[in-house]
Each structure stands twice: as structure tokens, then as C-alpha cells.
Design a protein around this nucleic acid. Sequence first.
DNA 1: CTTGACCCTAGACCCTAGTCTAGGGTTTAA
DNA 2: TTAAACCCTAGACTAGGGTCTAGGGTCAAG
Lengths: 148, 148
Amino acid sequence: MSTEKQTSLTIGRTAKQAGVTIDTIRFYEHRGLLPMPQRTANGYRLYPPETVSRLHFIRRAKGLGFTLDEIHTLLKLQDMGGAKADVKALTEHKLKQIEIKITDLQLMQDALRKLNTQCSGTGNVSNCPIIETLTVNSLPNSDNSSTE
Amino acid sequence: MSTEKQTSLTIGRTAKQAGVTIDTIRFYEHRGLLPMPQRTANGYRLYPPETVSRLHFIRRAKGLGFTLDEIHTLLKLQDMGGAKADVKALTEHKLKQIEIKITDLQLMQDALRKLNTQCSGTGNVSNCPIIETLTVNSLPNSDNSSTE
DNA sequence: CTTGACCCTAGACCCTAGTCTAGGGTTTAA
DNA sequence: TTAAACCCTAGACTAGGGTCTAGGGTCAAG
């Protein structure tokens, strides 16, 4: 019942609130995804509450197929207060990646919906190609390789 | 001199056309993502051209954050000619996953667009929170007892 | 008939993204 | 004052998803 506002969290509390483990936090710090936190006199890490949001962001970005390195660059966009040109270039690159991902997911969605309605009736499921939706319809070719 | 259409491809050709390595193909076969192919008399694998599409599909699905196991179930949806009930349940589950991914990507997109237009001018980049877009707006975190 | 480009298997190896010890210090409630 | 419940570092270990090597067969061209 402490009435004082908690302005910083221990690693354990941060982890719990973010839904990750303590190890993951230390690992991300090591990787540069989390800034080096303040420390107490005895060496305990102290995190500002925003760290929880940052961790949420990382988790979900990972679920969208971004690697930690890619997420790092996304986070740097926010972190850097200068280097406007870099920001511009990076965001544009990321936006392209994201557009492709969205399109792909929508194509997959269409295919699954078809499977679900048209094809799950009494007909033959094998007439409903999921695969083609992502290969024939999209990306004419465009060598879509590097992820940074 | 054979101008006849190649109805099946060696592993090398398949790999090249799909943009993966030979090892990857064998690995996927091992994992059940690719059906066991025909073999020539001397044991060489022979793939139908559809295998290329299947491999494309796998690649892109991976890029969307699906694991090989998840992709396996997506592919099974297409492969299975029966078990309609399973198809229904699985597709519905996958559709939910996909919807979440799309929403997340759109939120990210919004954030980056803002960064790009509003924030890359002369202002302060740090006013443009990418992170919040994916944490505040989505996933109602029940555990969030913010005692202001 | 040999050289280079393919193919085969089995198993070792690698990178990413954590996860888990081992060994030790701190704080707090009973 | 001691046990639970935290925190620390360093380093070993794991799982997923490949990638590479060794050792060997096949085939087309020169």
C-alpha cells in the first residue's frame, strides 16, 4: 500500500509485467535492444516503466517475423534524436517490408477463408489451393531476400 | 533436343527455382514439409513443378513469423483430402492468428508513417513513439494495474 | 576415360534466441 | 538469525532451422 509512485522497477517486476523472463531481459540488454539501466548501490538493475512497453513491442515484432537485429533498427529509429536522413531511409525500408508482410497475410487469409467456406462443405478440399495464393498471386518475382 | 516440357525437376533445379538450397529441401522432406518425392533408378529425387510453389510458400510464411510446425499444419490443410472437421478448426485458428498479425503490422505501419512524415522534418524524433503503437493500442493486458 | 557438374547418405557443425546452472550477495518477514 | 525471495556474473546448454563435410555414386562432354 505504498502511496509513492514507483518510478522504477526491478528486473523481476519488469520481466513479470512484460511477460518475459529475467534472462531474456539481460540477454536483450547484452544485445543492445534495451539500454543499460540504472543500478542501485548494490548493483541491482532499475528500469523505468517504459521498458515494459519496449519489451512488449519486441515480443510482438518477433511474432511478425522480424529478427532481433531488425527490431533493433526499428527501436533505434525511436531512440535516435538526430540523424534524420537515416531515419527516413530506414523507415521507408521497413515500411516496404511491412507492406509485403501485410499483403502476404491477406492472401493467406483469403485462401483460408475459401477453404473454410467453399471447401469445407462436401466438396473436395484438394481443390482449394492455399499455396498458390502466396506464390502465384503475389510478388511477381522481385528477389525478396535480405532482411537487413 | 527435347523441347518437351519438363514434368519433374532434380533437387538442384528445384532448389534454384525456389531460392533455397538443396540441403534445405532435404531438411524439409525430413521434417515432413515436403512429401517424399519420386526417385529415379539411381536414387535421385524427382520433384513435380508444384514443389517450387510449395517452397515459395514456406519461405514467405516463415517471413511472416510462422514456425515450420505451423507451416506444416497450414500445408496439411491443403494436403488432406478428408477430415473436414479438422480443416475447419485449424483454419479458424490460423485465421485468428493472421488477423492479429495484420493488425499489429498495420499499427507498426502507422507508427513508421508518422515517424516519416511528421517527425523527420525538423522536429524532435523522440516525440514519435513507435513502441507505444504496438503496446498501448493492442492486447489488453489484464495484469496492468497502473496505480498512477 | 577422365573431368566437372550433379546426386546420395549420415552426421557434424553453426547461428539465433534464449534458458539454465554455479557460485555468490542483499533484503525482509517470521 | 535464518529462510524465502530477490538480485548479480559468467558460462554451459538447448531448440529451431538450417549448412557443411566426408565419402561415394552418376552422367555428359571433350
